[in-house]
Simulated assay, not measured.
Amino acid sequence: MLKIGITGQAGFVGNHLYNTIGLFPEEFARVEFQKEYFEDTDKLNEFVAQCDVIVHLAAMNRHTDPNVIYDTNVNLVQKLISSLKATNSNAHVLFSSSTQEERDNLYGKSKKEGRELMVEWTENSKGRFTGMIIPNVFGPFGQPNYNSVIATFCHKLSHNEIPVIEVDGNLKLIYVGELVNNIISEIRTRKGNSEILIPHTSESTVSGILSLLENYKSEYLEKGIVPSINNVFELNLFNTFRSYMDIKNHFPVKFTQHTDARGSFVEIIRLGVGGQVSFSTTHPGITRGNHFHTRKIERFAVIKGKALIQLRRVGFDEVIDFYLDGNEPSYVDMPIWYTHNIKNIGDEVLYTNFWINEFFDPNDPDTYFLDVC
């Protein structure tokens, strides 16, 4: 079993990598890292000494003074190398650099020099090094005004602010989940390569991205319609947008119920995408679920009975409770990377409709069991 440590574990890419590695407990063991370790030589040495693999993601992307970015990033690499030497480490170190290496800015310069310092360490040790040159990364939970323009747009639109395009350039992009899969593939090779260009998986203008996101706000956030999704990039972008919603206050969403002498009728979902619809009954006191998805879009609609739907983001402690009552039929959509369940808290049988955007495939279920509470 490989012991893997991630500097920058709590950051955007680091958190996704940490959680994904956790899906393979028989193959990988995670070595915990805290950013304070860089200020404590003994703790950094202890961390490094435990690791078979170190993925160095810790870095500064933005600051009002570019010199601070440069000094910080180079200094972090130097501290890591000092610890590798002090512990006589033979670890495989993977380093995240950027396509900005060749640009005339101090961030790109810091990444290039950091990679070169790591290559020099490899030449004088028994360790291995992989330098990954990475395009623009986007995905759920990125920090707005820091990680990417997509993060900024998603945050603003989901909080009723108006995004502004500063430069309508063409962006070469990779989804964070795709990048994580690349990193894990490199770990599995157990080989080093001083310079690997991680290919982008999609390309779009800034205005094209904003147009899609504005449509997601209009269709999904305001009308409850799952929009048309034409390719993997649009699915990833839609899931990214959903991660910025204020789910505590948005859900549950009540259906419009039509009642006459015959009974009642509610429209469950309007779709611009296909998928699978299921119906279930749940006996009083029974809980379903306690799992999460990394790509699927899913809706729970309570039609009859009383239910408690609970969500918890993977890696966090806060549990979000939603109480739904079939007397006022309503739904909750499940964000990706949130483990969720539904429990019958009433005295009668609970009737629930489930919709998910893809057919169930037992060979690729994208369903990972984890208790909410």
Score class of each variant (00 low, 15 high):
1 M>F: 08
4 I>E: 13
7 T>A: 08
10 A>F: 08
11 G>D: 09
11 G>K: 08
16 H>W: 14
17 L>D: 03
24 F>K: 02
25 P>Q: 07
26 E>C: 04
29 A>H: 14
31 V>H: 12
31 V>M: 11
32 E>C: 09
32 E>L: 14
35 K>R: 15
42 D>W: 01
42 D>C: 02
44 L>E: 05
46 E>I: 02
49 A>Y: 05
54 I>V: 05
59 A>N: 04
60 M>K: 04
64 T>P: 07
65 D>T: 04
65 D>W: 01
69 I>S: 07
70 Y>A: 11
71 D>W: 07
75 N>H: 13
76 L>H: 14
78 Q>I: 12
78 Q>R: 15
83 S>Q: 12
85 K>G: 05
89 S>I: 00
97 S>Y: 06
107 Y>V: 01
109 K>Y: 04
109 K>I: 02
110 S>F: 12
110 S>D: 08
117 L>G: 15
118 M>P: 12
118 M>Q: 10
132 M>A: 12
133 I>S: 11
136 N>W: 05
136 N>H: 11
137 V>L: 08
139 G>T: 10
143 Q>H: 13
146 Y>F: 13
146 Y>E: 05
148 S>A: 03
149 V>A: 03
151 A>F: 00
153 F>N: 01
155 H>F: 01
157 L>I: 01
157 L>Y: 00
164 V>R: 00
166 E>L: 14
169 G>N: 11
169 G>W: 11
172 K>R: 12
181 N>P: 11
182 N>P: 07
182 N>G: 07
184 I>L: 13
193 N>H: 12
194 S>A: 13
196 I>N: 02
197 L>V: 05
199 P>E: 00
202 S>F: 02
205 T>V: 00
208 G>K: 03
208 G>L: 00
209 I>N: 03
209 I>Y: 03
210 L>D: 00
211 S>W: 02
212 L>C: 01
218 S>H: 07
218 S>P: 00
220 Y>Q: 01
221 L>I: 04
225 I>N: 00
226 V>S: 02
229 I>G: 00
231 N>L: 12
233 F>D: 03
235 L>P: 09
237 L>R: 09
237 L>Q: 05
238 F>P: 03
240 T>V: 04
262 R>V: 06
264 S>D: 04
268 I>L: 09
268 I>E: 03
275 G>W: 09
277 V>Q: 07
277 V>P: 05
278 S>R: 15
280 S>M: 10
284 P>F: 04
284 P>S: 12
288 R>A: 05
289 G>F: 03
289 G>A: 06
292 F>W: 10
292 F>P: 11
294 T>L: 10
299 R>V: 09
302 V>Q: 08
302 V>H: 08
314 V>G: 07
316 F>T: 15
317 D>G: 04
317 D>I: 06
319 V>W: 04
321 D>M: 02
322 F>E: 05
323 Y>T: 14
324 L>Q: 08
324 L>C: 10
328 E>V: 07
328 E>P: 04
330 S>A: 14
330 S>D: 07
334 M>S: 12
335 P>Y: 03
336 I>L: 12
337 W>E: 13
342 I>D: 10
343 K>M: 13
346 G>S: 11
349 V>R: 06
350 L>E: 15
350 L>V: 03
357 N>A: 08
358 E>C: 07
361 D>K: 12
362 P>K: 09
365 P>N: 14
367 T>K: 15
370 L>M: 15
371 D>R: 08
